[in-house]
């Protein structure tokens, strides 16, 4: 008996013996790198760093994510500490990263380096998770986190609030650049999870009315240094 794999491949090869015409296109879009070909057609991500930052802050506001811009690391520590006390966080988990350790030690509540000793039950009980990120996409207001930059898969989605601390230089104009950057950085050793986060978790499943905080974080803060 032939196995499923070879059967399916045989069916595919047989089916593709007859060629299908190319789709009727409005343009003579020549195949090339999709993101480069499509760049002038997609939403603008900004040509300069300043333009990108302006687009980013507009997008984040529409997504109901909060952007906090600070001049330096010390100011970032202060900003997160203020956030924690105003929201009365009791337990905060963070990713063990040089940018984040000072932030964590600046907090007066219980903190826990979540990727050192993973415990999903304990993580579930945390008020907030603090992570870094791979890059930030101005065009869409999306933050790319990975299992490498965010203390694994759960820290950036299980706690009720997600705080990302990043450098302003991590902002890239568009999705194509973010994907290319991830590939250049990790090659064929991609982190097992890469996730574009576009605003706090949301649902419209009940009467198509928007509710924030479906299963993931209800609040998303981006602390941008520099």
């Amino acid at each position: 008996m032939s196995d499923a794999r070879s059967d399916i491949f045989a069916r595919i090869r047989e089916a593709l013996k007859v060629k299908a015409p190319k789709p009727h296109l409005k343009t003579d879009a020549n195949p090339g790198k999709t993101s480069e070909v499509a760049k002038p057609w997609l939403p603008d991500g900004g040509e300069t760093a300043d333009a990108s930052l302006a687009i980013l802050s507009e997008q984040l506001a529409k997504l109901k994510a909060v952007l906090i811009r600070v001049p330096d690391q010390a100011a970032a520590v202060k900003a997160v500490a203020e956030l924690a006390s105003s929201k009365n966080w009791k337990k905060v988990a963070y990713h063990g990263h040089d940018l984040l350790r000072p932030v964590a030690s600046g907090l007066s509540c219980e903190t826990w380096e979540a990727d050192a000793t993973f415990d999903k039950q304990r993580l579930e009980g945390c008020d907030a998770g603090i992570t870094t990120c791979e890059s930030i996409v101005a065009q869409l207001g999306a933050i790319l986190v990975s299992s490498a930059t965010s203390g694994g898969r759960a820290l950036s989605v299980l706690p009720h609030v997600h705080v990302v601390v990043a450098e302003a230089s991590q902002v890239v104009p568009d999705l194509g650049s973010a994907l290319a950057l991830a590939k250049a950085r990790h090659g064929d050793q991609m982190p097992s999870m890469l996730s574009f986060i576009t605003g706090p978790s949301r649902t419209g499943d009940i009467e198509r009315i928007l509710v924030l905080g479906a299963h993931g974080p209800k609040e998303l803060y981006l602390v941008l240094v520099g």
């Binding site: 203390g151 694994g152 898969r153 097992s192 576009t198």
Partner: peptide
């Protein structure tokens, strides 16, 4: 809100997954 790429189970050095 989330567009996530998965490339395998937990890798060496990753704490969850």
């Amino acid at each position: 809100c989330y567009n996530t790429l998965y490339s395998g189970p937990r890798k060496k050095g990753e704490c969850d997954g």
